[in-house]
Nucleic acid binder design. Structure first.
Lengths: 118, 118
DNA sequence: CGGCATCCCTTTTGATACTG
DNA sequence: CAGTATCAAAAGGGATGCCG
């Protein structure tokens, strides 16, 4: 580490990717590039329209995604990851990989605990 | 990306580092290795004892830090980062660096917006 | 010194109904 | 289709007091 904890800007990055459904929204847009609102909704069945709208607005506010409205009936709105948004990809991939290893590590630790408890 | 959004384990990593004071606690322990409770409290003036205790317990639960109690009066408790906990360091450093760049990027974008608004 | 217990406030998320 | 509005529940966090 070459920075002081007092100057920590980790929270600025966290603010953008934290939110119950934000990581999965980001991963879908990173994978597909562009998706319609309804397409995202179908891909993430348990999310409510309210939360999907809210998270998309917040990501747009931070320049991570673009929102394009096609003025037609019925409405069509497309969301796409920006080039800038793609700079988050390595971090998300690292966290995914760390998360996978952590599951294994916890299982191992808990088995150790169970065997010494006998 | 070589994984499907449905299999996303980003949240497992996020769960561990998310919390109002968790990043700064982790950065102090990564920097110093071992610190006493009161030492952490002094280093992070605005944190309450309750939140410091809570976050430390959660990090211990995930094997990120160790907690050693010295049975003496007055009590002495030392917290240290585990070897396993250190595997989080690259992710925290990446997020810190991304956070720094993001501040600059936002400023630039907002200046662009201000100049076109004239 | 290093906690824990209690009460309270704020923020986040969810359920549901309605709309251009 | 892609939202908004409203109400309610849950989670996160803070202030304070007490304790071995």
């Amino acid at each position: 580490m070459n920075f002081e904890p007092e100057l920590c800007q980790v929270d600025d990055a966290l603010d953008i990717i934290v939110g119950k459904w934000k990581p999965i929204i980001l991963l879908y847009l990173l994978k597909n590039g562009t998706m319609r609102f309804s397409e995202l909704k179908r891909s993430i069945p348990d999310i409510t329209q309210k939360m999907l709208t809210k998270h998309l607005r917040e990501l747009e506010e931070e320049y991570i995604i673009d929102r394009v409205v096609y003025p037609q009936v019925p409405p069509k709105v497309e969301y796409s990851i920006t080039d800038y948004g793609r700079t988050l990809e390595p971090i998300l991939v690292s966290m995914h990989e760390w998360g996978l290893k952590h599951q294994q590590y916890k299982q191992q630790k808990q088995m150790e605990k169970a065997s010494t408890a006998e």
